[in-house]
């Protein structure tokens, strides 16, 4: 038997027994984020409470928050933002699940096709929607040239951009996000063993029960993360509702932008307060969604014994 040579202890190995080693290792990356993003947040917060700024006496004040929350426009905008974010996320989630199920057996081309819209900038997409859906757009013209009786001029075409129902905005988000979500869900679906479906069928599951009881629960992690990304993105998106959305009310990001670019510099703290509120709401919703999406609140134990 040969004696085991004691390994040379290096600084790296000394770290091995530190319980929070993993956190220590991400520290460099984390500090970069902390300085650039966290620092910005701190500066923004200081401006919003009047401790730092171009105007005012430099004393602590929550006046900007009061002004933001007291404005009726804020609540209308919040409602609109939530409506757009929830509707767009829900629609793209449901449609993506359906599309992914349809493409489940398809070859590599399906994933490739889903990537096609990814590199297209939102502005190009918006321009496309305007060209297609506006009252003088392609679809309107096509219908007119086909001689559809109810289209005798561009006034007869329903308003689909800058409309109060935000159909143009939804159309754009669905066009952009469905392929993205389908791409993620396809990858998750391909990781689910097909034998599980076979096993469920052999235990008495109809194809629908099989989807509902086996495939969908196994897809859940993918659905949660993909829809979270979509929700966070849509909720904070500026250019799409700005160019395609309803003229009144406007979404929260537009409200922030307008307050920030206002010639009245006294509006600046309000703009920042609005921005911080937007982030807070976003974070709270995402945390709630993650908790619900983990399935933990619904998991129950059998047998009644602890």
């Amino acid at each position: 038997m040969t004696a085991v040579q004691p390994l040379k202890t290096t600084a790296w190995m000394a770290l091995r027994d530190v319980p929070w080693r993993a956190y220590l290792l991400v520290l460099p990356a984390l500090s970069l984020v902390a300085v650039l993003f966290g620092g910005g947040l701190v500066l923004a917060f200081l401006q919003s409470v009047g401790l730092l700024g171009l105007t005012g006496d430099g004393g602590f004040s929550l006046a900007a928050y009061g002004a933001a929350l007291g404005d009726e426009q804020f609540w209308r905008s919040l409602g609109l933002s939530l409506y757009i974010a929830f509707t767009a996320t829900a629609l793209s989630t449901v449609l993506s699940i359906g599309l992914a199920m349809l493409l489940r057996e398809a070859g590599r081309w399906a994933s490739f096709a889903c990537q096609l819209t990814l590199p297209i900038p939102h502005l190009v997409g918006i321009a496309g929607i305007l060209l297609l859906l506006s009252p003088s757009g392609l679809i309107s013209r096509l219908l007119y040239s086909l001689g559809w009786i109810w289209i005798s001029s561009d006034q007869d075409f329903p308003l689909l951009v800058n409309d109060s129902a935000n159909i143009g905005v939804m159309t754009h988000f669905l066009w952009k996000e469905i392929p993205f979500m389908t791409l993620i869900l396809l990858a998750v679906l391909r990781g689910i063993r097909p034998e599980l479906g076979m096993q469920a069928r052999a235990l008495g599951a109809t194809p629908w029960q099989c989807f509902w009881n086996v495939t969908l629960p196994l897809l859940r992690p993918g659905i949660v993360s993909a829809s979270l990304i979509v929700f966070g993105f849509v909720f904070g998106n500026f250019e799409v509702p700005f160019l395609l959305g309803s003229t009144y009310p406007k979404t929260l990001p537009i409200l922030v932008y307008q307050a920030f670019t206002n010639v009245d510099l006294n509006q600046r703290p309000v703009a920042i307060a609005l921005g911080l509120l937007l982030s807070l709401i976003s974070i709270a919703l995402i945390a709630l969604y993650l908790w619900l999406g983990s399935g933990q609140p619904f998991r129950r134990r059998l047998g009644g014994q602890p």
Binding site: A200, V214, P217, L218
Partner: peptide, 16 residues
């Protein structure tokens, strides 16, 4: 079924 507990796995066919 990896998303179900052992008990839920056994009860699966009955649930259906």
């Amino acid at each position: 079924f990896p998303h179900l507990s052992v008990g839920e796995n056994v009860a699966f066919g009955l649930k259906l």
